[in-house]
Amino acid sequence: MPRGGDGADRIRWFPIQPGNMLHAANAYEDERGRIVLEGPCVDREGFRLSWNWWVGAPGRGTEPNARSFTRRWVIDLAAGSVDEQIIDDLAVEFPTLNEDYLGAEHRYQYAVSFPDENGFGGYGIVKYDRRTGARRVRPTGDARLPGEAVFVPAAGGTGEDDGYLLTVVSDLKQDASRLLVLDAAGLGQVAAVDLPRRVTAGIHGSWIPDSALDGDAGED
């Protein structure tokens, strides 16, 4: 789809494998002019298992994101082809990144991991290094479901992963929640704040510095 103008007669369609992607990690044009799109995607069976979990249907899946594996599509506009790959076998959702890199090639991205239908994996925060292919996982514990990890750049930071990840972890057994602050570079714990009541597991979070609440900042 062209960026400018209506372009209705210039929309191009490319066949890919069936799948359902709720949240894209990022998309950008590489140095060869190809479009790269990446994010968790479920196949037909994964969608059935996940849907059964969400609606509480009989025979439901054991987790909300069974078979939600990260895929990468590289769309070659000149050749009219798509290279599609599953690049990780860990069930994840809610991908995030340093938003300074939205629409541009990025090195690091983050996600929430889930146990799959076979019990592989577990609840945690995942960091991917797309340059080296490395994957690092920070487990959050049994029945402790983290929410989407929001990247917050460090004051004066210069590196792409120079900052923090904020996630609200919901304890499904204790009916309690805590705000977990992780170092985005190594996923080490910086702080944990027990909240006065449970915050139900959510999808998206937004955070602003308290300085933005001063003066007329809230009038924009």
Rank of each mutant, 00 (worst) to 15 (best):
W53R: 07
N52E: 13
G61I: 04
A78R: 14
R67M: 15
N65P: 00
L77Y: 00
G61K: 03
N65F: 15
I86G: 02
W51D: 12
T62G: 15
D89S: 08
A78F: 03
A78L: 13
W54D: 05
G56D: 15
V74D: 07
D76F: 01
Q85M: 07
L49A: 10
G61L: 09
V74M: 08
F69Y: 15
V82I: 08
N65M: 15
P58D: 15
A66V: 12
G59N: 14
R60T: 04
V74E: 14
T70N: 13
R72F: 04
A78P: 01
I75C: 05
N52V: 00
V82A: 03
V82F: 09
N65S: 07
N52Y: 06
A57Y: 08
L77K: 00
A57K: 13
I87M: 10
E84S: 09
D83P: 00
D83Q: 11
T70P: 15
N52T: 08
E63M: 09
P64R: 00
N52K: 12
P64Y: 05
R71K: 14
T62S: 14
P58F: 07
S50I: 09
N52L: 10
I86F: 04
R60C: 08
N65A: 14
R60V: 01
V74R: 10
F69A: 00
A78Q: 13
E63L: 06
D76Y: 02
V82T: 04
I86T: 15
A66K: 01
S68D: 11
S81P: 04
A79P: 04
I75R: 01
E63R: 02
G59I: 09
R71C: 10
R67H: 11
N65I: 11
D83E: 13
V82S: 02
W51Q: 08
I75Q: 03
F69V: 00
G61N: 05
G59E: 12
G61C: 05
F69L: 10
N52C: 07
L77P: 00
Q85H: 10
E84I: 01
A57C: 06
S50Q: 11
V55G: 04
A79F: 01
P58M: 08
I86A: 12
V55F: 13
E84K: 01
W54S: 04
E63S: 12
V82Y: 03
R67P: 13
T62H: 06
R72V: 09
R71T: 11
V74W: 08
P58T: 06
G59K: 09
S81W: 00
I86K: 14
T62N: 14
N52R: 11
A57T: 11
S81F: 00
